[in-house]
Amino acid sequence: MTTPDKVARHVAIIMDGNGRWAKRRHLPRAMGHRKGVDAVRELVRSLKDTPVECLTLYAFSSENWKRPEEEVDDLMNLMRKFIKSDLPEFIANDVRLHILGDWRALAPDIVAMLEDAIAQTAKGTRTLAVALNYGAHAEIVHAARKAAAEGEIDEQAIERHLFSAELPPLDLLIRTSGEVRLSNFLLWQAAYAEMLFLDVLWPDFTPDHLKQALAEFAERERRFGGR
């Protein structure tokens, strides 16, 4: 039997490699992003067969606005389609949607769709957290300002105001595509998380990859600064 400390309750993924996936197939980058959404869909469907209580996905960073306007527009349209098409499935599968980042700065219709999705899935027992217009530096600054307004700034005060405050502590952070960096993602939360860097492009990531990652996590010894 797997002991509680060997179970990853909260897994976060930096979904990297959509563009390279498309380039290797001589396809437009937009096709890579669409296949990436398909990978998200299959992964969320598989959560019921895992011990994962919360899956956090890095969908759109605050730095992604620097990309060509056409690519950003395509990503936003994919977001609209995903919310519209998959919301009924989220509700049916008891999945709660949580958003991290300055997402209310997105287009008004997307904000309205997200607010509706959050409300309709509020009673879900398993969480899909999506980082939208997110940057960890900005998150920490935001939390520190909120803490300062309340009084003394300490770790507990900052943690109370992180976008992830209501989520379980981060256990495992995965990055696909072979890149080995965090790219301004969950820097505070990842302080003692286990990390796994996979040489697989995001559109090729499957539920089996997640299960393998969870198995590897179970074999690791977490010391949290101890011996």
Rank of each mutant, 00 (worst) to 15 (best):
Q212E: 15
S177G: 02
E166L: 11
D102C: 15
T127G: 02
P51N: 03
P168G: 03
E70P: 03
A119E: 15
W202I: 00
A105F: 11
F197T: 12
M195K: 15
M113G: 08
I158V: 15
G36K: 09
L186G: 12
H142E: 14
P51Q: 11
A136F: 00
P168D: 00
L128K: 05
Q212R: 14
D208P: 02
I158Y: 05
E70T: 13
A112M: 13
I118K: 09
F224Q: 10
F197E: 14
F224G: 05
A59N: 10
A119Y: 09
M15K: 02
R145I: 14
A30P: 08
R222N: 00
L100I: 07
R20N: 08
P168K: 08
D73F: 11
A107L: 13
N64E: 14
A8K: 04
T56D: 01
E221W: 04
D116W: 14
A144R: 13
W65R: 05
V52F: 11
I153L: 00
V40N: 02
L214Y: 07
N18T: 06
P51I: 00
M113N: 05
E71N: 12
D74F: 04
R126P: 10
L170Q: 06
V44R: 12
H26T: 12
A122V: 10
R160C: 13
V44I: 09
S61F: 04
L167Q: 08
W103T: 09
